[in-house]
């Protein structure tokens, strides 16, 4: 464990908590893509099945349980408790165009053709594009609540910190995982446009207006 990975995990945790609290406190999921949240729940489910087979550390297990719990709680709030505030008309990204290719790629490009490894690979590829429905929804509505932009900032920052963690691990431990790195680069690139807007326009505006 190094500082980049730890701050990366904490940034990820912050994003997940910010979103859950935003929906719970405002009792509204307006502007939030339920589809992205379903994809994240799918990412955590397919990646953390090893909770049932191996114990790595208390930290590892605790974080996985928190991530999975919060992901499903968020999906529940969006599609059940506050479904009246769910903006389905703008959350129209065709997620099957993400899940099917990613599923196929996981079968073709992986480290080992075992069920757990293929599911892990699927979760890595899926996570890199899981935010697209959310970014698509924001581009359609042309705006995002400030709290939603903070959520996206920390979510994008987490994988960027993981990239630094992988550079650190390659340099000091000779460890590298090509699949995770390539997917992590793609994932972080998808946020670049948002990062630019967040930094340049985030200050002092109540709504982040993205030019459609």
């Amino acid at each position: 464990m190094n500082i980049f990975r730890l701050t990366g995990d904490l940034s990820h945790l912050a994003a997940i908590i910010i979103l859950l609290l935003k929906i719970w406190k405002t009792r509204s999921c307006a502007g939030i893509s339920g589809k992205s949240q379903i994809l994240f729940a799918l990412v955590f489910t397919s990646r953390y099945l090893d909770l049932l087979t191996s114990f790595i550390s208390l930290y590892n297990t605790t974080m996985k349980v928190i991530y999975i719990g919060c992901a499903y709680a968020t999906v529940y709030l969006i599609y059940a408790k506050f479904k009246a505030t769910y903006d389905g008309n703008h959350d129209t990204f065709r997620v099957e165009f993400l899940v099917v290719p990613v599923g196929g790629l996981a079968f073709l490009v992986n480290h080992d053709f075992s069920p757990l490894e293929i599911l892990w690979t699927f979760s890595i590829y899926l996570e890199s594009v899981a935010i697209l429905p959310q970014l698509f929804m924001i581009s359609k509505t042309g705006e995002a609540e400030t709290i939603t932009t903070h959520y996206l900032f920390f979510l994008g920052l987490y994988r960027a910190l993981y990239l630094i963690n992988w550079i650190w691990r390659f340099y000091f431990e000779g460890f590298f995982d090509m699949i995770a790195i390539v997917a992590g680069v793609v994932q972080t690139i998808l946020y670049c446009d948002f990062f630019y807007l967040y930094v340049t326009k985030g200050e002092g505006r109540s709504q982040l207006s993205i030019p459609t």
Binding site: M63, Y67, F176, I179
Partner: peptide, 10 residues
């Protein structure tokens, strides 16, 4: 260089 994968990362 072969890619190693230890699943201790989240």
């Amino acid at each position: 260089l072969d890619s190693q994968t230890d699943k201790d990362e989240l």
